[in-house]
C-alpha cells in the first residue's frame, strides 16, 4: 500500500443549525486521483474547503502525515503551503501579472530566491501552455487561461496534494477541455489530486477512485468501474441516471 498523505476522521461541519458534513471518513494516498461527485449542496466543496482549513471543521480530525491539522496549535498557513488548491473562480491576484502570480507564494512563503522562483514559475507555466502570457494581467485573459495559470500557481509551490474545487464549472464549454487536459496530464505524472467535479467523463476515465456524496455523507466510494458500472446504492443510481439523461 502506498504512503498515506491525508486521513479524515469523523469530520463534521455545521453552519449554524445546518449540518453540511456528517461524520466523514476517508483517506488520500500518494498518487491517488480521487473524484468527488454528487448533487449541488451535498457538501463536496465544503469537504474540500475543510481539508484546506478554509472552513474550520466543527468536529473530527484531519491527519496530515499523522498530525492533526484541525488542531488550533498547528499553524494553518504552514500546512496550506503543502496542500495546493484550485478554485472554481480562479482567485488569481488581480494586482499582479501571470508570472508574478506564480512567483509570489514561492518568494514570500517558501523563501525561494527570485531567480529560482521565476525559473520554477516559467517551467510550470510552460507545462500548462501559458508561457506566452506571462506579462498579462488576470483581467486580460480568458477563463480557461486563468484556470491554467491558477493550476501553475498551485504547482509552483510543490504541493504534496492538489485540491480542485469544481475547476471547470465557471468556464464556457469550449474552455473546459483545455483545463481538463492539463489536469489529465498531471494525473498521469503521478500528482496526488482530489477533484470535486461535475465532469463525469473525467471522473470515470482519469481518477482511480470515485467518491459519491449525498446529503453530507459519503454515500458510496470505489473504483470508477464499480461506481459508474455497478452502483450499489439507490441514491447513486438516481444521480447517475439523471446525469445520463441530462
Amino acid at each position: 500500500m502506498s504512503e498515506m498523505i491525508l486521513q479524515v476522521n469523523h469530520l463534521s461541519k455545521s453552519f449554524g443549525k445546518h449540518e453540511v458534513l456528517k461524520d466523514i471518513d476517508f483517506t488520500v494516498n500518494k498518487g491517488d486521483v480521487i473524484s468527488v461527485i454528487g448533487a449541488s449542496g451535498s457538501g463536496k466543496s465544503t469537504l474540500l474547503r475543510c481539508i484546506n482549513l478554509l472552513e474550520t471543521p466543527t468536529s473530527g480530525e484531519i491527519l496530515y502525515h499523522g498530525t492533526n491539522v484541525a488542531d488550533r496549535k498547528v499553524k494553518a498557513h504552514e500546512y496550506r503551503s503543502h496542500v495546493g488548491m484550485v478554485f472554481q473562480s480562479f482567485n488569481l491576484f488581480n494586482n499582479m501579472t501571470v508570472l508574478q502570480n506564480c512567483m509570489i507564494g514561492q518568494v514570500k512563503v517558501l523563501r525561494r530566491s527570485k531567480a529560482e522562483a521565476k525559473e520554477k514559475a516559467l517551467y510550470f507555466l510552460e507545462k500548462v501552455g501559458m508561457l506566452p502570457y506571462i506579462n498579462a494581467k488576470p483581467r486580460q485573459i480568458s477563463g480557461g487561461q486563468k484556470q491554467r495559470v491558477a493550476i501553475a500557481r498551485a504547482l509552483a509551490m510543490d504541493p504534496e496534494v492538489l485540491l480542485f474545487d469544481e475547476p471547470t464549472s465557471a468556464l464556457d464549454p469550449e474552455m473546459v477541455g483545455e483545463v481538463l487536459t492539463v489536469m489529465q496530464n498531471l494525473a498521469q505524472e503521478g500528482m496526488t489530486m482530489l477533484v470535486v467535479t461535475h465532469e463525469m467523463a473525467f471522473a470515470r476515465d482519469v481518477s482511480n477512485r470515485v467518491v459519491f456524496m449525498a446529503n453530507g455523507v459519503i454515500c458510496e466510494q470505489g473504483s470508477p468501474e464499480d461506481v459508474f458500472g455497478n452502483p450499489q446504492r439507490q441514491e447513486t443510481k438516481d444521480f447517475l441516471t439523471r446525469f445520463r439523461n441530462a
Binding site: 478554509l54 498557513h77 509570489i104 512563503v109 498551485a154
Partner: peptide, 22 residues
C-alpha cells in the same frame, strides 16, 4: 473580492502577507 484572500491563504500566506501583497 474575498476570493483574493482565499487564493492567498491557499498558497500558505499569513494574514500580514495577504494584506501587504494582495
Amino acid at each position: 473580492d474575498p476570493g483574493q484572500t482565499e487564493g492567498a491563504k491557499a498558497i500558505g500566506m499569513t494574514h500580514v502577507q495577504t494584506m501587504l501583497h494582495v
